[in-house]
């Protein structure tokens, strides 16, 4: 067996980071009661914008900032349509994916990278030299750490702050939240923007770190997977990490098993079918954890007169 479990787990973290980033953003959006199915569109906008800004300035920081801005920009289209003009969220989200994919492709046409972008790995002093755990967890680039810190931050803000309480109230029952005097639309607007920024960052991680290059359609469905993980995690931030690593891990594991002759412990694995296990697992988890209820107002339009 040539699979090195340490390297495999470290690779799994890198492969999972884009979906983890996009998913934490979508989780916040959904907890505010908004279902934005346009994650794929926002991710690919982030991927192209991050690539263009990064390779024009040579700065990874500028690249990621540009990606977040692009993600926010596209999410604002969704926010205006669904929150101000009260359009149907499902249809608008699907439209956002079409629009984002088209626009990203147009933006990327003819762009020639001017400067190289290097995102270096940061070994965390002390921790990175722990055997086994060190190389798996503490020798990554800044964005991998950021993705986990974001999950932590969302966990704390949602669970232990007033802002989080209001956001959850808005997501559970917007009419009651409105009656209590909470600014439903403003909260949702901010949650949608946060979702856009995170999706943008996730896209840029693909085009600036993981692949790294810009090609049409480079996100290749990662945004849809991010949506799946949010459900898998039953809207709980910590479970999101498990979900993202399971999904990301399955793709990396699948490739590794193939490289190793298609066998685990001598048993031949049908790799074609292995790639659908995360989705089936999500359904199973949904059934087992029927307590993992979606936010009460998810996907419904809010208007003060209702």
């Amino acid at each position: 067996m040539d699979i090195n479990p340490i390297l495999l787990l470290a690779a799994l973290m890198v492969a999972s980071t884009p979906i983890l980033l996009a998913a934490i953003g979508e989780l916040v959006t959904e907890r505010a009661g908004v279902l934005n199915l346009g994650v794929e569109g926002m991710m690919i906008m982030g991927a192209v914008a991050g690539y263009i800004v990064g390779h024009s300035t040579g700065s990874p920081l500028a690249g990621f900032a540009g990606a977040a801005a692009a993600g926010i920009g596209l999410s604002l289209v969704f926010a205006i349509l669904t929150q101000v003009l009260l359009t149907n969220q499902t249809a608008t989200g699907l439209g956002l994916t079409l629009f984002g994919m088209g626009l990203a492709s147009l933006m990327g046409q003819g762009f020639e990278p001017a400067l190289p972008v290097t995102v270096s790995k940061i070994a965390i002093p002390g921790l990175s030299s722990i055997p086994v755990l060190g190389p798996i967890l503490f020798q990554h680039d800044a964005i991998v750490y950021l993705s986990i810190l974001l999950v932590l931050a969302v966990y704390l803000v949602l669970g232990y702050s007033r802002a989080g309480l209001i956001l959850r109230a808005v997501g559970e029952n917007h009419d009651a939240a409105h009656a209590l005097g909470y600014p439903v639309r403003l909260v949702r607007l901010l949650a949608i923007m946060f979702g856009g920024a995170c999706a943008g960052l996730g896209g840029a991680y693909i085009s600036l770190v993981r692949v790294p290059q810009w090609i049409d359609g480079i996100t290749a469905g990662a945004g849809w997977i991010a949506l799946a993980i949010v459900v898998f995690a039953s809207w709980k931030p910590w479970r999101l990490i498990g979900g993202a690593y399971l999904f990301g891990g399955m793709t990396v594991l699948q490739l590794n098993i193939q490289g190793d002759g298609g066998k685990i412990f001598g048993v031949t694995v049908p790799v074609e079918y292995l790639s659908m296990t995360p989705f089936v697992a999500t359904i199973v988890v949904l059934v087992v954890m029927s307590a993992g209820r979606a936010p009460g107002s998810l996907g419904k339009s809010f208007h003060a007169s209702n």
Binding site: N4, L8, A11, A15, L255, G259
Partner: peptide, 9 residues
Amino acid sequence: DAAKALIEQ
């Protein structure tokens, strides 16, 4: 990902 997996192996 495939290239990385191969290199790591």
